[in-house]
């Protein structure tokens, strides 16, 4: 990344902060930022938009915990899970639950590019590699 891009990166980081409400990306704010950007007709608009797209995508991904589970999860468990994950990542998270019988038993949690596999399928896959 050259010097110019580094400056743009700082600018995009500020844009990302402006797009959040309570630490979560807000659709309305993103739309507003986009409109202002396009109207400004700035010189390196394309690069800025590309960097902005990447940052927003990364932010949304790391702010979402995708939880696959086999069997039912009670509301109390869900709350416990949310509290544990949020304290671990130190930020508010949106939880997406999905039932996946292929896991056989247990849960698999993906937050951004981190995956915590606590399922029988994962354990078996691990065993098969030994």
């Amino acid at each position: 990344m050259n010097v110019g891009n580094r400056k743009l990166k700082g600018f995009v980081d500020r844009l990302l902060e402006l797009s959040k409400t309570d630490g979560v990306v807000d659709v309305e704010k993103v739309e507003a930022v986009l409109k202002t950007l396009v109207d400004s007709k700035m010189k390196s608009l394309k690069t800025v938009l590309q960097l902005y797209r990447f940052s927003v995508k990364k932010e949304i991904l790391s702010g979402t915990a995708k939880i696959s589970h086999s069997g039912t999860i009670t509301e109390i468990q869900k709350d416990e899970l949310k509290a544990t994950l949020e304290s671990r990542s130190g930020r508010p998270l949106t939880l997406e639950f999905r039932e996946d019988p292929d896991l056989i038993a247990g849960v698999k949690i993906a937050v951004g590019d981190y995956v915590y596999d606590h399922s029988v399928r994962g354990a078996l896959q691990n065993l098969s590699q030994i």
Binding site: D113, Y114, V115, D117, G122, A123
Partner: peptide, 27 residues
């Protein structure tokens, strides 16, 4: 206690000539 497997994953965004470009893998 059965420990869970923690891993850092990524997705292939482009692959050609024996070289892959991967998104994610932040660690």
């Amino acid at each position: 206690e059965t420990g869970s497997q923690q891993s850092n994953v990524g997705k292939i965004v482009a692959i050609a000539d024996g070289v892959a470009r991967i998104e994610g893998l932040s660690d």
